[in-house]
């Protein structure tokens, strides 16, 4: 009885199924690896790498942006101080230039004034000299007209002496 059931069990057990399963299962492993597992896991790895790279890239670009912002801030500060300096220099230059112009104008005016004074002086002396000559001439002419005759040498001498005497006395009285 016992023997019979064991033999029956062996009889029903189909070893071919096991072999068939092994073959099919190994084939399935190969096919799934080639068509599904390989591409999908590759894509998953690619994605993981890409995410890592993106995160790293984001970190570096963020650091770069911060650096650039700081640089811009510093430049802005620099430019402000530079502008103040430029304005200051311009103001100083302007003051200097104004002073120069004023000085030049002053000296010009002085020289013009001096020249005018010298001219006036010269004109006055010239006028005085010519007036003196004229007076001498006119007085000689008047004297000729008044006397109306030829003066002898003696008369002339007397006259001149008298004149000189008069002059000296005039000088003395003056």
């Amino acid at each position: 009885m016992m023997n019979g059931s064991v033999i029956a069990a062996i009889d029903f057990a189909s070893l071919g199924d096991s072999l068939f399963l092994l073959v099919v299962f190994i084939l399935l492993l190969l096919l799934v690896k080639h068509f599904a597992w390989g591409p999908v896991t590759k894509m998953m790895n690619d994605r993981a790498n890409k995410i890592n790279e993106d995160l790293d890239g984001a970190a570096t670009s963020r650091a770069q942006a911060e650096k650039m912002a700081a640089q811009r801030q510093a430049e802005l500060k620099n430019s402000k101080s530079e502008a103040i300096q430029i304005v200051n220099t311009a103001k100083v230059n302007g003051d200097k230039r104004r002073q120069e112009i004023l000085d030049a104008a002053q000296s010009d005016a002085d020289s013009v004034k001096a020249k005018a004074r010298a001219d006036a002086q010269r004109a006055r002396t010239e006028a005085l000299n010519s007036a003196r000559q004229d007076v001498a001439q006119i007085s000689v002419d008047i004297a000729e007209k008044l006397i109306g005759k030829e003066l002898s040498v003696s008369d002339q001498k007397d006259l001149i002496d008298a004149y000189i005497k008069g002059l000296t006395s005039a000088d003395e009285t003056r």
Binding site: G16, D17, F20, V32
Partner: peptide, 20 residues
Amino acid sequence: GLRFNVANCLSILLTALLVF
């Protein structure tokens, strides 16, 4: 010399096919 259960073999094949 090996016995094959047709039902098992068909189901194994069908399962493998479905998985694939």
